[in-house]
């Protein structure tokens, strides 16, 4: 891919470090703790899935890492520097595909190249040439080649989510943040997209932090799974997934896999009480 043209700087520090980071919304009696002081460390190129009951602060961690919110206390470091320092390029996809309705799929996917350096500086020159080819190549990879010039409302939910993944990856992010990206899709589309995501991940090896409700999704995709407790959330389990990648979708029906997800399920059932 085009990433060869932009050599990545060497990062000796872990991709993500949360040091006792907490988030409190409001103040005084109205204060709501969204995240109790949490410590988490993620190496570069790792794929971590964060699972837990709703409202436990999974998404809060993502919003911290993406610098959409600041920690109330503690530290959030990306590549060893403060999250605001833009040390690492971030790509993010939400549950809602959030395509801008006035842009075609091609232009939506191209958006990060317009905003993020070093792509930004030659955007005017390359948007009709190199960048366009780059977008088309990625769309091709997820099976959306023929839809580049369509508008978002002309696409199905699954297709929009593919485009969303493309937009999160087009600028070769160091860090891919996924907030329940397949939550609103049917089972077949979801499994299809798991494989698409796995291919993209193995192809580009970004650091991936995936927030999900779906234990099978976590097990199929991730190399490491962290379980969070109910509100106020904290991490109560941190386990590696010992299955070689790439994984076949059939793996989710093997006894080992079922046993692993069963274990996670019981853990979450306990912490919900």
């Amino acid at each position: 891919m085009a990433s060869a043209a932009y050599p990545q700087p060497v990062h000796p520090r872990p991709a993500i470090e949360l040091h006792e980071a907490s988030v409190v919304f409001g103040s005084g009696d109205a204060a709501v703790t969204a995240l109790t002081p949490t410590t988490l460390r993620m190496e570069r190129g790792d794929f971590l899935a964060l699972v837990g009951p709703s409202g436990c602060g999974k998404s809060t961690i993502l919003r911290l890492v993406s610098n959409l919110i600041k920690p109330s206390s503690g530290q959030v470091l990306l590549g060893g520097r403060d999250a605001a320092a833009k040390e690492m390029r971030i790509g993010m996809a939400f549950q809602n595909p959030t395509m801008l309705p006035w842009l075609t799929i091609e232009k939506n996917v191209m958006l990060p190249l317009k905003i993020v350096e070093p792509f930004k500086r030659s955007f005017q020159r390359d948007r009709k040439g190199a960048y366009r080819d780059r977008v088309h190549a990625l769309l091709e990879q997820v099976g959306l080649r023929d839809f580049a010039n369509h508008f978002p409302w002309q696409l199905s939910g699954g297709m929009l989510q593919r485009a969303n993944l493309c937009r999160a990856l087009i600028h070769d992010p160091d860090l891919l943040l996924l907030d329940e990206p397949f939550g609103a899709l049917d089972q077949f589309t979801r499994e299809e997209l798991w494989q698409t995501l796995q291919d993209l991940y193995l192809d580009r090896k970004p650091t991936v932090l995936l927030v999900t409700h779906d234990l099978r999704e976590a097990g199929f995709l991730a190399r490491r799974i962290c379980v969070m407790s109910a509100r106020p959330g904290r991490i109560i389990s941190d386990k590696a997934v010992m299955l070689p990648q790439p994984r076949d979708i059939g793996v989710i029906y093997t006894p080992d896999f079922v046993e692993m997800t069963q274990g996670l399920r019981e853990l979450i059932a306990q912490v919900r009480k």
Partner: peptide, 17 residues
Amino acid sequence: EPDLEDVLKTLGASTRE
């Protein structure tokens, strides 16, 4: 919609962008 703005903010876009 804040969601649409978040897409740009996570990319590190300025307020003007």
